[in-house]
Every structure is written in structure tokens, then in C-alpha cells.
Design a protein around this nucleic acid. Structure first.
Lengths: 232, 232
DNA sequence: GCAAAATATATTGTTGACAATATTATCGGC
DNA sequence: GCCGATAATATTGTCAACAATATATTTTGC
């Protein structure tokens, strides 16, 4: 696959929820805009505007804001309004710490619960084609692969509790993850790390997979620390 | 201290937040009732009743419900109402898994960040008096000590992100933690484990402290598995 | 007396109007 | 022209009435 073929910015798709009510739809759409940086951190968001745009009452928008606030995606200042949460370097480091242990757990549980063949598809996905794509800086292809890896692991881990926590964190760090990919060398390192993790998972070594996944997050943290002046 | 002296059920106090708005106050009070089992799992909670009891409009109650739902403390079924979340054995096992890694992280960070003397107060608290109290089944004293240990660790860890996750989880498992204490032998084992953890923290061995804390949660999980017929 | 339909009641869902607060624009004095 | 006070506007916060839905009760037919 040639990187020239990737034209459309894919962003991130809305996840699993059916999104049945007006409020749910609003939450989903706003979440999407925030994590795709269509509403960058610090953006003021007005209740009236959104109510008009989506043809719903302001109450629904307020409900949605309440949920987004609880998830840490927006900040509400009384009588002033809501702004997209702006994360400082400290917060990112905290999130790396939490991700390290939670994604480690995710990989361990997934390895324990899934049959070895479960991982064959992912191993193929993280093959030569993707390696070339990464080498050619096709970050969309890599991001999509990472997302699939992540989703497969969460599914295999089979813990709704863990899924909820990881989803929350994911939303908060996605834009940073994308930016981190631009740092020369990070993407290919991450690619190799995921290959190793998958090998461990395929061989059923849950402890090793967990350890490798934790090292993966720790190294991402190192890159962030080194380049945070350019990333924030 | 004689267990005969402990008369009043202390329950749990409202935590750190100032709770300034009506909605915040409602969330806090409902949270308190839920974790203290004044509203046991499965209880139906009606918006009108609460609105009247607290002399607020139903909108405030609905806002509070939205927050509690997001935190996983209540469940809302459209057009039917809200009930206190009922946790199954599977959910508790999931929560133990997550607690294991997150509380391990908490202890590790706390050890790294705090001066050794920081732990002297807790070491004293977990001394002979408390040991005797535990032996005499003074669970309130033990619960209070555990809560203080927990709070000191979170403070020392200094991660708002981690604090948020742990607070959410804490609310969901508190009633189970209390019941688990009734299982013969669990409380004294937990007491000894906390003594060991504190020793490791005092000596500055973050890795050991993390490992011990994880073992602590794993053993709690074992007791739960063994006695879950009596606990649920 | 029983079952199913129809009615009545209770409860949650939604909305638009109004109040409180913050932001911006206007005006007057120097 | 600049600064402070005051008025105008915009935005969020709150509420109470109304609609939609589910539950409980009564009625009706057999």
C-alpha cells in the first residue's frame, strides 16, 4: 500500500454504543470532535450553538456536558461556560503511569483468556506491509492497526470494568498519541514493540506480554518527556 | 480500646470536595447512602422523593443521577427509573483485578515521592493497639485505619488521575470490603499485610511495596472467591 | 371467578420561559 | 485619548409546567 493512496483523514469512529437517545448522540459527536482536535483544548463551547446545530433543546446539551465533564473531556466553570480540557505535561505523565499498569493488565488478561490462534489475524496485520507503511510514515495505517490491537485485547480481556477505564483514558490521550507518532523513530519502535507483544501473546506467555506492554508505555513516556516542548 | 465502646455506626464521611452546588451536595449525600448500604443494591430511587426531601427541583436530582450513573453507582433504565447498581460476582472479580494494579501503582508512587518519615504516623497507627482491636473484632477501628492508609498513600502519590480512578472504584467496593472483614481470619491477615507494606514503604523499597500491595489485593480476591456465596 | 381490555395513577422525559451572572459596549469626566 | 462607571447584551443556571411512558387499578365480557 502506498501512502499516497491515503487521502481522507479518518479520525476516529464512534465506538460500540448504539447511541440511542439525543443526549447519547450528542456525547458521542462531541467526544469525536474533541479527540479529533476539531475542538482543540481550550475551545469555548456554547450551549446555545450546539442546541441549535443539533436541533435539540439546551437541556440535552447540558446533560451531555455533565457526562463529558465527568469523563474529564471538558471543564465547566460556573456561570462562565465549558471549555475543552487542556492537559498539562504533568497530567500526561500521570496518564502514562496509569496506562502502564492498566494496559499491562489488559494484555495479561487477554493472553490468559484467548486461544493462541486468536492473535493470528493481528500478527498478520503487524506484518511486512505495515512495517513498510510505518517506514513510509503512513501514520493512518499504523493508527488503525494500533486501534485494532487495542480493541482485540479489550475484547479478549473480557472485563467491562477495565474496558470502561481504558476507554476514558483513551479519549484523553488520543490526540497526544497521534502527535507522538510524528517524533522521528517513535512509530517504528512502537511497531516493533507491538510485534514482540503479539509474539508473547501468541505463545501464551501472559507475564511476558504484560511486561512488554508496560515497557512499551514506559518508552512512550520517555519519548514524551524528551520532546514534550514540541508536543504540547 | 474496648469494642464495647464503639456504639455509633460511623459509616463513611464525605470526602474532600467542598460540595458547593445543590447538585454536588446531592451527589455527595446519595453516594454516602449508597456506599453505607442505606440504599442497598437494587433499591429503586425516585426523583420526586429526593427532590422533596432536599427541597430542590427535580432537575437537580436528575443532574445528580447523571453523575452517579457515569460513576457506576446507579443504573438508569429509560422511562422506568433509577436503581442502585447491583454487582455480580464477576464484577467484583474484575474490580479486584483493576484494584491490584492501581493500588500497586499507588503504593509505588507514594513510596517514591514521600520521605521515609512520612510513614511513621501510619506505622504507629498499625501498632499493637490496632492489632488487639482487630483481634477483638473492632472492625470500625480497622476500617478507619485502612481508610487513613489509603488516603495517605493517595496524597503521597500525588496523581490526580490516579486519585480519580481509585475514588470511583472505592465507592463501588466499599460495602464488599466491609463484609469481607467478617470472614474469620481475613481482617488479621489484612492487618499483617498492611504492616509489611508499611515497612517496605518506610525503607523506601517501592518495588517491594508495590508487590506486597498487589499480593494483598490478590489474597482478598481469594477470600472473596472462597466465600462469595456468603458475601453476595 | 377469571382474563383481557380500558382507565387511572404514578413516574420519568422534555421543553421553553425566566432568573442570575458574566461579558461587552456605551457614555461621561478629565 | 484614556479610565471608570453604567447600561446593554450574551451566556449559563434554575425551575415549573407539560408530554410520554410504564405501572396499577378498575371495568367488562364470558
Amino acid at each position: 500500500m502506498n501512502s499516497r493512496n491515503v487521502t481522507k483523514l479518518p479520525g476516529i469512529e464512534s465506538p460500540l454504543k448504539p447511541a440511542v437517545s439525543d443526549t447519547d448522540r450528542l456525547v458521542d459527536e462531541l467526544r469525536r470532535r474533541i479527540v479529533n482536535n476539531q475542538m482543540p483544548p481550550g475551545s469555548r463551547i456554547r450551549e446555545n450553538e450546539l442546541a441549535e446545530e443539533f436541533s435539540v433543546s439546551r437541556s440535552r446539551v447540558r446533560d451531555a456536558f455533565g457526562i463529558l465533564e465527568e469523563r474529564g473531556l471538558i471543564e465547566r466553570i460556573p456561570n462562565k461556560g465549558a471549555v475543552v480540557m487542556r492537559l498539562e505535561a504533568d497530567s500526561f505523565l500521570e496518564l502514562f503511569d496509569v496506562r502502564e499498569v492498566l494496559e499491562g493488565l489488559m494484555v495479561r488478561l487477554a493472553t490468559q483468556n484467548a486461544e493462541p490462534e486468536y492473535w493470528d489475524g493481528l500478527i498478520e496485520l503487524f506484518g511486512d506491509d505495515l512495517e513498510k507503511a510505518v517506514a513510509e510514515n503512513d501514520f493512518n495505517a499504523y493508527m488503525a492497526a494500533i486501534a485494532e490491537f487495542r480493541q482485540s485485547c479489550i475484547d479478549a480481556a473480557g472485563s467491562g470494568t477495565l474496558r470502561g477505564l481504558l476507554d476514558d483514558i483513551y479519549d484523553r490521550v488520543l490526540s497526544m498519541t497521534r502527535r507522538l507518532m510524528l517524533v522521528p523513530g517513535r512509530a517504528s519502535e512502537g511497531f516493533r514493540q507491538h510485534q514482540e507483544i503479539l509474539q508473547a501473546m501468541r505463545s501464551g506467555d501472559a507475564e511476558l506480554a504484560e511486561d512488554l506492554k508496560r515497557k512499551n508505555i514506559r518508552s512512550a513516556r520517555q519519548w514524551f518527556l524528551k520532546y514534550n516542548d514540541f508536543l504540547l
